[in-house]
Structures are given as C-alpha cells and as structure tokens.
Design a protein around this nucleic acid. Structure first.
Lengths: 355, 355
DNA sequence: TTGAAAGCGCTAACAT
DNA sequence: ATGTTAGCGCTTTCAA
C-alpha cells in the first residue's frame, strides 16, 4: 500500500494525497475528506523510510546510557524514572526512542562509535557521562551538528552544549549542613563516581558544608564510590574500621546508602542511634527502608521530560542551543538522620523546600 | 557523503562500492582494498534510510512495555534487567532498539496503535501483556506477518506465537511447598496482576502446593495485587486484619514482598518470627532486606537475551516461528522463611536447583 | 569483475 | 487547487 494506491482509489494524484497527510492547506475541503476516508479505510500509514529520505527526519531520537553507568541501570530506579519522563514527552510528540545501553564488558569507544554510526536519529539525549570520555563524543556531535541534550551539567564546551540538571552542589551542601546542625561532628561521605560531574558536585557540596561550619576537612572520612550499592557497602566497611568513630555518613546516592545501611546493620550498630545516614535521589528505596532515609529529592522524571522537550525543540528549530536548565531540589528529612524519632515522616507532608 | 562520492574518489561505480560494503564476493581483491581505504578515510557510513528503502530492513527492533506494567518499570529492577539482556544481544548483532513505554494515563488501545503504526521496526519483543488486551495486538501482528516474541507464556494463538518464559507454576508450587514443609499452616498469598499470565500461573502454583499438602483452599487468604509494592503493602494490611492469624505469606514478586514487609514491620511483628514472607524474582531488593528474602531466582537477563536471539533469528529467517522456550528457575532459601536463622545465606552457595 | 539503469515510496519545486 | 516531475541514497537486476 503506497501513496500511489491511495491516490488511484481516491481519484487524485499522489501529491494531493501527500498534501492531505501533511496537512497542507492547499487542498479543497471535498478532496481532503475523500482522500482521508480512503486512507482510513485502507489503514494506510506512510513509509517512514521513504518520508525520512526526503525530509531528512526520522522522528526518532536516541537515548544514551554509557558504559560507566549502565550497571546502575539495573539496580536503581534512577534511569527507569528518567526514561519514563523522556518517553512521556517523546511519545506525545510523535517520536520514537532508540535506546543505547552500553555493555559492561565493552570498550567505551566502541560503544560511542556504534551510537554515532547510527544515522536514524534526529538527535540524542545523553543520560550521564564521565567528564573524560564525554569529550570526544561531544566533539563529534558538535562537529556533525547533531542536536543533543545532556542530563547533567556540561563541563566540556559547556557554552555550546544544552543540558538539564539540578544544583547538586547546593543540595548536598544543605543536606550535610543539616547533619552539622544536628550536632554530628565526624561526618563522612561515600562519594559517587568522581569521573562524573554529579559525583564531583555532590562531594564539593559536602566540602563546602564542612568548611562553612569550620569543621576541618579530613580526607580519611572521604571514601570514593561509584553510585552503586556495593560501593556503599564496601565504603562503609572502610569507614567502620576507622580509629575515630564516624557519627554520620552522607552517601552520594540512595543506592549507595542501601549498601552502607547493610554494612552498618551487619556489625550490630543502629541507625540513627549509632550512626546517622543520609542519601541522595529519594528513590523508592529511601522510603522503604527502616528507618526511612533522609535524602534529597529531585525531579528525576521531570528532568527527563524537560530534556526531551528541549531536544525536540532544538530539532524543530523552535529553540536554539545552548539551553542550560536547572531544576529545583528538596531536602527530605526522615528518620535516618536522627532529626525525627519514632514518627512517620513523609516528604509529601514534611518536605522542606530549599530551592 | 554518499556512495557516489566514494565511488568517484575510488575511481569505480557506485554499484561496486555497494558490493564492497555488502561483502559481495564479486569484487576483485585490489578494487575491494582501494574502495575500503577510501571508505575508512572518509569515515563513510551508508544511509540506513536509503538502504532500508530497498532492502525493507531497518536493523531496528521494538521493545514494548505496555500500560498495565509501565508503572512497575520505575520501581523494580525487573524491566531494566530484561532490557539489559535484550540490549546485549541486539547491539552485538548490530541492531538498534526502539523502546515503547506506555503512559499510565493513556488508553491501552492508543498505545498499541502508536506502536503498530511505526514501520521502522523489523520485529518486536513484547515485554509483558495482559491476557485480554494482548489479543487485538497479537492478531494485528500476526496479520501483518511481523516477527515478534513474547516474554511470557502466550495464551492467545499460542501455537503461532513465539515466547521465552519460565515455569511460573512449578516454581511457585515448590516455593509454597517449602513453606508447607517448614510447618506453616495458614499460608496466604498476595497475587500479581491476574490479567497477566505470570500472575495467574504463580497463583495456580500456590493453589497446587496447598492442594498437594491437603490444606483446604481459603479464599480469604488470597488477596489480589498487581506486582507493585503498594499492592503488597495494602494486601498485607488486609491479611493482618484477618481473625485467624496468618503465619506465612507468598508475595507474587519481591517488590510486593517489600510492601508486605513494611506493613508487617509497622505493626511491630517480626519476620520470620511472627510471619514468614517469601517473594519471587530475586531482585536486588531481596538480598538487601533484613532479614534477607527467600524467593525464586530466575534468569531475567537471559530471558531478555534469548528473546532477542529468537527474534533476530526469526527476522533473519534462520528460525521459523513458533519457538517456545522455558528457562530454569531456582529456589533461593534465605532468612525470611524461617528455614535458616542468624546465618548469612547466598543463593550462589546454597541455591537448590529445582529445574 | 564491473558498470548502467531502474526503482524503493515519499516530498517539494514547478507548472498549470 | 491539483498534477507533473525530479530527486533523496541506496540495492539490485541486467548488460557487457
């Protein structure tokens, strides 16, 4: 079934059918109605390949989840939530979504090549990247003039790159300041992946909070993790061995907090009695734990949705690059920081908006 | 950059370049080498649209996550793990993956139409469906002769449909039989979505285990859920109100078990002391809980990988539909069923293979 | 072993 | 308001 077939059945030329399909005003009411009825009757859908060939548009965008973080994809609700937000917008604007998930075993470069080689995409969303490896990738995209949006603060060529993010630094700073205010003295942190801007900024926030409270920075209280729960578990083991007793821990993500939680529980210590624990993200994990986790909520789904909107607008030409969007976050105080005792707290009712 | 450009630079015709790219043997060694060097030198990649236009192949498959379960997508590691398995194979076989996630608010029919309308896919993987709504969808796919694979036992036109699944019925039966053997008398279940075959089969397994143990079936011990943790929470609340004391609960998925866990903990009861709790899936949740959850492990990632292989083979013509593949499962006995006390158990060392 | 030419199904410029 | 025509960049006959 082609345009030609429809044209014949409707007694018009194929250009007229094309015009009807593309809502070209230069078609009479009667013709339009007649053609539409044939199209509907036959259940005709124009071939996207043929159409793409001439318009140079595929109505497909790519969503890239790179090596460094694809393992986290499975264990945390972060990426699925982000994808959900992206999908919502992408589908409503009649686009498809080509998903690229890097394999753990694979060279990052090979992965990038595979993605870059695919010419089916009108643009792409980069759902996280390392500050080092993103460079050649981004340079390539810029050179090809492919529209793209990052879902974190761009550090490389940031003046030319669009992104949607949150203020990781200040959100973390406020979270750690909250611990300071509660009287904790030996506050440790298990960081995220420090190749990643989000990880870097969360560490900076921790440092700033201590600095502001005039607590001297102690590098032995900083353990490098990678956003995974395993790194939380192992990081916490290290912190528990320290001669000086740690009294509070900031895990760079809720998933990491889950790992730390397990390590703390295993040695028979209690939260927050012996050690306070806070996370970041407000994933479902956070409210399913006992005690419930104090954390930073941020609009993950909306982040995805915004990124999709920006990308699609960039593709449409409605918007010009670069767009730098920062979404608000919120400190969610629950039980694990020791601020509230024996009382259910839910961010919906108790959230303190800080941004 | 087109074939023509390469052809000119290499001093051959565009058909020859096409032959080189497609590994046609009818090209001399010398010509082949010369053409390749130009291709590489220019970083040329043939346009997939133009190519697809003539071959009727896009090197893209669709992965469909329908309405009924897209909410779960965010909260459970199930779909991400499945996607990871699919991606692994799909990418290694040089295919792309168009992801279709239904929106909660959206009509199921509209969603199906959107997916069906996209003619960019060579085939699709249906990652779960309701037994009712899958019918028109599957009929349509069959009519169009589109290759597709389901990731659950097909009930509609199963003789013509390929699928990759596990034996939900016997796995559940063995799990509940395990509870019976431990001496539990009033075993309840919070089911999965009963519109879904996996949910149905897990309930049937529960019923069979009781029947085999000659425990009379009590419908008040069966609460209908939908795979979500919230349904576990709410279902457990109902079970806790029952006049007769429930002593064990089979949640149709680990996520549901997490919800039930919370409800049990909230009223001050202990697991497994007061109530035993078992789940299904062996998601990361299961081993992160305290006590760790007794559950059924199944190869989710492999299920995705197999489905992808079958689909790609179907597209290649290497395989003929229908393929019915059943993957093995394993009962994972941990602490929450009360079989083991104060001792760490990991399925890697203690898993009892049942299939 | 290579080249010339037709054509996949559509859009868009041009003609009427 | 509608039809005619020329491609988009490939693969694939058919000829040589």
């Amino acid at each position: 079934m082609t345009l030609e077939d429809i044209a014949e059945k409707a007694g018009v030329s194929r250009s007229t059918v094309s015009r009807v399909i593309n809502d070209d005003p230069r078609v009479s009411k009667e013709t339009r109605a007649r053609v539409w009825s044939v199209i509907e009757g036959e259940g005709f859908v124009p071939d996207p390949l043929a159409r793409g060939m001439v318009t140079r548009r595929t109505q497909v965008i790519g969503v890239v989840i790179p090596t460094s973080l694809s393992a986290i994809f499975r264990d945390s609700a972060y990426f699925p939530t982000l994808l959900d937000g992206i999908a919502k917008v992408v589908h409503s604007r009649d686009y498809g979504m080509l998903l690229w998930i890097a394999q753990a075993s694979e060279e990052e470069q090979l992965f990038q090549q595979r993605v870059l080689k695919n010419r089916l995409m009108d643009g792409m969303i980069i759902a996280s990247a390392t500050t080092v490896n993103q460079r050649p990738f981004i340079d390539h995209l810029l050179r090809l003039n492919t529209p793209f949006v990052m879902v974190e603060r761009a550090v490389h060529r940031s003046d030319q790159v669009s992104y949607v993010t949150i203020d990781n630094l200040h959100a973390s700073q406020d979270l750690v300041s909250h611990l300071v205010k509660l009287g904790y003295k030996r506050i440790a942190t298990i960081t995220g992946n420090l190749d990643n801007v989000d990880g870097q900024d969360r560490l900076k926030g921790y440092q700033k909070a201590l600095e502001q409270a005039q607590i001297p920075y102690d590098s032995s209280l900083v353990v490098e993790g990678d956003f995974s729960s395993q790194s939380g578990y192992e990081g916490m083991k290290i912190l528990l061995q320290l001669p000086c007793q740690v009294d509070a821990v900031f895990a760079a993500t809720d998933l990491t907090a889950v790992g730390a939680f397990q390590a703390i529980t295993e040695v028979g210590l209690s939260i927050p009695g012996d050690i306070a624990l806070v996370g970041f993200d407000d994933l479902p994990h956070a409210s399913h734990m006992t005690p419930q986790l104090t954390t930073v909520w941020h609009p993950i789904q909306k982040k995805g949705a915004q990124a999709a909107h920006v990308l699609l607008d960039l593709i449409d030409g409605t918007l010009a690059s670069p767009q730098h969007i920062q979404l608000p976050t919120r400190l969610v105080i629950r039980d694990s920081c020791g601020a509230v005792k024996r009382q259910e707290v839910n961010y919906k009712t108790n959230g303190t908006s800080l941004v």
